[in-house]
Simulated assay, not measured.
Amino acid sequence: MAGRIVRWGVVLGLGGLWWWSVLRLALVPGAGVLEGAVAAGGWGLSLLPVHCVPKAKAKAKVRAWRGVAPSGTRGAVVRE
Score class of each variant (00 low, 15 high):
residue 52 C to K: 14
residue 41 G to H: 01
residue 17 L to D: 10
residue 26 A to W: 09
residue 75 G to I: 02
residue 73 T to G: 03
residue 13 G to V: 05
residue 7 R to N: 15
residue 42 G to K: 01
residue 42 G to C: 02
residue 38 V to G: 00
residue 11 V to L: 15
residue 10 V to P: 11
residue 45 L to F: 02
residue 10 V to H: 12
residue 1 M to Q: 13
residue 54 P to I: 00
residue 20 W to H: 10
residue 3 G to Q: 08
residue 74 R to I: 01
residue 50 V to F: 09
residue 2 A to H: 14
residue 36 G to R: 11
residue 79 R to G: 12
residue 48 L to Y: 08
residue 29 P to V: 10
residue 19 W to A: 14
residue 70 P to H: 05
residue 51 H to F: 12
residue 26 A to I: 01
residue 38 V to Q: 04
residue 23 L to M: 05
residue 17 L to N: 06
residue 49 P to Y: 13
residue 46 S to F: 15
residue 32 G to A: 13
residue 21 S to L: 01
residue 20 W to L: 11
residue 57 K to T: 07
residue 72 G to P: 02
residue 53 V to G: 04
residue 28 V to K: 06
residue 63 R to A: 07
residue 63 R to L: 03
residue 46 S to K: 12
residue 51 H to G: 04
residue 11 V to D: 14
residue 5 I to W: 06
residue 13 G to I: 03
residue 24 R to H: 12
residue 68 V to R: 09
residue 47 L to D: 12
residue 68 V to Y: 09
residue 74 R to H: 03
residue 26 A to F: 10
residue 77 V to E: 00
residue 13 G to L: 15
residue 57 K to W: 08
residue 5 I to N: 09
residue 63 R to G: 08
residue 65 W to Q: 04
residue 51 H to W: 14
residue 65 W to K: 12
residue 25 L to C: 13
residue 59 K to W: 05
residue 17 L to I: 13
residue 43 W to D: 04
residue 18 W to F: 07
residue 36 G to Q: 10
residue 51 H to D: 09
residue 35 E to H: 11
residue 68 V to Q: 10
residue 37 A to V: 15
residue 46 S to E: 11
residue 28 V to T: 15
residue 5 I to H: 00
residue 74 R to W: 01
residue 55 K to D: 08
residue 63 R to T: 05
residue 26 A to L: 15
residue 5 I to M: 15
residue 9 G to D: 03
residue 19 W to I: 01
residue 73 T to K: 05
residue 73 T to D: 11
residue 53 V to N: 11
residue 4 R to D: 07
residue 47 L to E: 07
residue 77 V to F: 03
residue 69 A to G: 07
residue 45 L to K: 05
residue 3 G to S: 13
residue 50 V to C: 03
residue 23 L to H: 03
residue 60 A to M: 01
residue 53 V to K: 09
residue 18 W to E: 08
residue 80 E to R: 14
residue 66 R to G: 05
residue 58 A to F: 03
residue 3 G to L: 06
residue 71 S to I: 00
residue 74 R to Y: 08
residue 62 V to K: 05
residue 78 V to C: 10
residue 44 G to M: 02
residue 3 G to D: 12
residue 2 A to P: 06
residue 49 P to W: 13
residue 62 V to R: 04
residue 61 K to H: 03
residue 35 E to K: 05
residue 6 V to S: 13
residue 55 K to M: 03
residue 25 L to Q: 09
residue 64 A to D: 13
residue 33 V to H: 09
residue 46 S to W: 15
residue 49 P to A: 10
residue 31 A to L: 00
residue 6 V to G: 14
residue 41 G to K: 00
residue 70 P to G: 05
